[in-house]
Amino acid sequence: MTNMAATATQPALNRTYPGRFGNIVFGGAAWTFAILVLILLAGVMISLVIGAIPAFKQFGLQYIWTEAWNPVKERYGALAPLYGTLVTSFIAMVIGVPTSLGIAIFLTELCPNYLKRPISTAIELLAAVPSIIYGMWGLFVLAPLMQKYIEPAIISTLGNVPGIGAAFQGPPYGIGLFTAGVILSAMVLPYMVSIMRDVFETVPPQLRESAYGLGATTWEVVRSVVLPYSRVGVIGAFMLALGRALGETMAVTFVVGNSYHIATSLLAPGSTISASLANEFAEADGMQLAALLANGFLLFALTFTVIGFARVMLMQLEKKYG
């Protein structure tokens, strides 16, 4: 009886307020999904902190700047993986930023039409390669090449320069922080290129054409018109790439050398936070597990800082130039 009554009234309701019920459902769902992101983030953060508490209790804040990783004696410190994470990402950006800028400028300003599509597709395909494939390629193909040709060349040239020479000395292992940085640069390149290409294309043709009309060269147009117009997007692209480089796991684990010692040379093996997690999580328990979770928390904080820093920078840029 009651069922029948309900079904009888519903169509009438719908007739009076067309679409209203659907609207409520849609709005509610959208709200729920948006809030879900916040809950998820808070959940990850809280569980990382809870898991990491034993490590911070045991070692204190100096955990962050201690260089130690000894599961037998249960002494841990995050400095070596933290250093490796920053250095590999830095190398990736040093190689990736100019390369991706060059590719994006070429694609939007210089590229003949018949080449545009093949290059763009190739870039998009690079982004679609799973990171484990980059890792295996790095280990089996790139590492031997680095060891036989590239690293010896670097050691015999840059290694002799006074001052910075120390960063390019030692035996050519083929794997290490430098190789990891090179692989990372290849992995973040497609992200930077495709975002930058898109923002460069938003530059109004009138601006570009009038600059050319005034007799500006391509370089002058890029420097004085395209880049200033799209700087927010370009910096956003760099930050997105940096965030990805900081957290990249599988490919780095294969080629970084996985040593918890900080060496002066960039060619020496090192470790990163995500590589330490990937390597040891399955077999870890007790304090080792807490230390790994503490590393995870530090990576979280690091990425958060990078994104926050990017936001602040973008806001200041917008204030400055309107």
Binding site: A68, W69, N70, P71, V72, K73, Y173, I175, G176, T253, F254, G257, N258, S259, Y260, P269, A278, N279, E280, E283, A284, Q288
Partner: peptide
């Protein structure tokens, strides 16, 4: 241990 503090060398996965 299943993982130790290696005095030297490189680690492969």
């Amino acid at each position: 241990a299943t993982a130790v503090e290696w005095p030297t060398g490189v680690g492969g996965k």
